[in-house]
Amino acid sequence: MTQLHHQIAIVTGASNDRGIAAAICRRLAAQGIDIFFTYWKSEASWPNTFQQEIIRQGVRCASIEIDLSRIDAHLLLLDSVSEQLGFPTILINCAAHSIDSNYMDLDAKTLDDHYYTNVRATSLLCVEFARRYERLNLSSGRIINLTSGQALGPMPGNLAYVASKAAISAFSQSLSAELAPLGITVNAVNPGPTDTNWMTDEIRDHLLPKCPMGRIGLPEDAARVIAFLASEDACWITGQVIHSEGGFYRG
């Protein structure tokens, strides 16, 4: 796969060692891409430890602790990246807010909390990234948003999360048409059930029979797909929602 040296990637939501965002940072750094990651409510020493791990791969790395539900989070983040590393050409929106909610307990606050992080922050980061990118007259940009396969079948008990992630899938497809003339591709990736810090043994036991490849997805599986979409080899792919689930069966 084409290496992307001297590029800078933003990866949001790298708040723990076992998450998809951390795996993405490692994968991109291995390709020579400088990394700027965001985190929120991590263990005190983890962000610095992780930053040093990325730097040891021979790239630059910086980070910021930021609550993406802030109304100005997109501006603060892009300003910080530009000041510390330079303007990025890759934006990966991995951060997400997720609280179980069914028809009995769904309320306005639950919907708003999901909207602020999953929809508003992602959407505003995308468009502000594109505006600044156009002013700088750059080429070959990448936006990759994480979604959750909500269009492939019902996800009961996750109504607010499903609604917010569905919005990102639709937004990504329409935004891709607007940004194609600028040379920015926009895609979304659904990694399927992934064995990160949220998954318990009970959940693993429930999911494993639905995984025909004999295992549950790993963060590294998602990172490989996203690294490809960030590469020059994916320059002709835009407006897609890619379901990378290892054949996960919803029946």
Rank of each mutant, 00 (worst) to 15 (best):
I92D: 06
H114M: 01
L136C: 03
L78N: 00
D72G: 03
Q150F: 15
T147E: 12
L146Y: 13
R142K: 08
N102P: 01
A163Q: 03
E134A: 11
H74Q: 09
S82A: 15
R132F: 04
S169R: 10
I99M: 11
A167H: 08
H114V: 01
T122V: 13
L111M: 11
E128F: 14
V162I: 07
V127N: 06
A166H: 08
S82W: 09
Y133S: 01
L75T: 08
S98N: 11
V119K: 10
D72A: 05
R135C: 06
R135S: 15
P156Y: 09
K109C: 12
G86N: 05
D107T: 04
D72P: 00
N102W: 03
T117M: 05
L159K: 02
N137R: 13
S140C: 10
A151T: 08
S98R: 10
L76T: 09
I168S: 06
I143W: 04
L75H: 11
L124F: 15
V127P: 00
T89N: 08
Q150C: 14
D72K: 07
K109W: 14
F129M: 02
L138P: 00
D112I: 07
T147W: 12
I99H: 15
L78V: 00
V119A: 12
E128R: 09
A166M: 09
A166S: 13
P154M: 07
S101A: 15
V162A: 12
Y115H: 13
M104H: 15
A96S: 09
R135W: 11
Y115I: 10
P154E: 10
L76V: 10
E128C: 05
R120W: 13
G86W: 11
L85I: 00
L124M: 11
S148H: 13
S169P: 03
C126S: 11
L76S: 04
L77N: 02
P88L: 01
R131S: 12
Q150M: 15
T147L: 05
A160P: 11
T147Y: 10
Y133F: 15
P88G: 00
G86M: 06
